[in-house]
Design a protein around this nucleic acid. Structure first.
Lengths: 232, 232
DNA sequence: GCTACCACACTACCATACAAGTATGGTAGG
DNA sequence: CCTACCATACTTGTATGGTAGTGTGGTAGC
């Protein structure tokens, strides 16, 4: 029979992949940074094989760029990708909140409520990393409650690029209150079934993520794709 | 300087990946089929490494399922994934045709026109594979003309699941004329800037892809995920 | 006849060795 | 001083061997 315990330790490839991805999204590995199979394998204490396979996965997500016989680099942030990620989220999340206003399970409504409470706590503690995670979880719950979890996962691939620019913005700007208030407003709209209001606030909410993108590109030009090319 | 020739032969990994993906999408490798690094490496005349790395990529796209120490299998078609792919396309393509009606480059308008002509030819020849490709290209041109090519690529990952079910449908049903007429109508609406009409037809058009899904699940139950599980 | 066990064939996972292309710094020649 | 060349130290790409977990068929014991 199956060993459905699900308790097996994760593979080396999985841990390496998760570690690298986290560091890239955190900007600990800044855009443009040179990686190397060998170096990463030494640092992480595994052989080149799982590192290499992680590079393959990250390359497919557009987070790294592999240039044969030359090197592997953390991708620069592509403003077009950021804008299109916003575009996708705008249209899909507007559709999803409308669904949510028509029908949303109580369990997930409570999950949203709990999530909002934790967001407040994180703001008090000024824990921006944690707030970032809660923000992601909040939107995920919305999709999950509408039976559209796979859609959220598909967005995820584009979303990582949007998130890198949002992370860049977090370090300077503080717009936490506004973000929380929008989440709270959307929650109430869903609860009351006010689809028009929910959709409108969601659209504004997602615009917040790309505001001042030009400003960021000015401040951190080395992190962005510049002209026609884009390779370091 | 860069060797920007772009004329280098593709790597073994790339060719293996493309080959396997094509066969899976064509249903030549039917859902549920058992694969193996060793066997594929023998068939394709390469070592296990590029095959393995292709499996990693395909697994990330959800086209194969790797069970450690047990085997690798072509994924069964998940109806939920098919429906959500349609959901994504519905909302994103509606938004895109609206953009197209507001502004669309002449070059891409001509590309659509040429594409439609080729579609007619394919229908005359009853070349369904070719028509399928042209259908994909048609929608791609729409996104490209609106500067949303990355969005189309992001859809692609979900779209492969939708396409497998569409491919399954093609073998029995013939709805070519209807499909063409909708493409043609959308084209004219874009040309005339009639956004409401374009959006409406696009929505109907995408519903066509999942019609009779239940019927297909009845006819080919072994290709679909059945109950709570989904593993072969 | 039925059950428990065990050897074996098979899988994917990981480590390692070799191959081939690329960037770079030093050096010889002008 | 400047340029062309070349050895060398990198890089990723590919092949292969060993390891550990898994399914299966046969067999011994009841």
């Amino acid at each position: 029979m199956y060993t459905n315990g699900r308790a097996q330790e994760p593979s080396a490839r999985e841990t390496v992949y998760a570690k690298l991805k986290e560091q890239i999204l955190n900007l600990e590995l800044a855009p443009g940074t040179a990686l190397s199979e060998k170096e990463s394998s030494l640092v992480l204490g595994v052989s080149r094989t799982p590192v290499r396979e992680s590079f393959v996965r990250l390359a497919q997500e557009g987070l790294v760029q592999v240039l044969p016989q030359r090197g592997t680099f953390v991708s620069l942030i592509d403003p077009a990708l950021v804008e299109e990620a916003r575009f996708m989220r705008e249209h899909l999340e507007r559709a999803v909140v409308r669904l949510a206003c028509a029908h949303f399970p109580d369990s997930h409504l409570h999950a949203l409520e709990d999530n909002l409470a934790l967001q407040l706590k994180s703001i008090e503690r000024e824990d921006d990393r944690r707030l970032f995670e809660l923000d992601e979880a909040y939107h995920r719950i919305l999709f999950e409650g509408c039976g559209k979890l796979n859609t959220w996962r598909a967005i995820g691939q584009m979303n990582v690029h949007l998130n890198r620019s949002r992370m860049l913005r977090l370090v300077a700007d503080r717009h936490w209150r506004h973000l929380y208030e929008q989440h709270e407003t959307i929650f109430r709209a869903v609860k009351e079934g006010d689809a028009d209001r929910a959709e409108r606030v969601m659209q504004e909410h997602l615009l917040l993520g790309v505001r001042d993108l030009a400003h960021l590109m000015d401040k951190y030009p080395q992190y962005f794709i510049s002209g026609g090319d884009g390779k370091p």
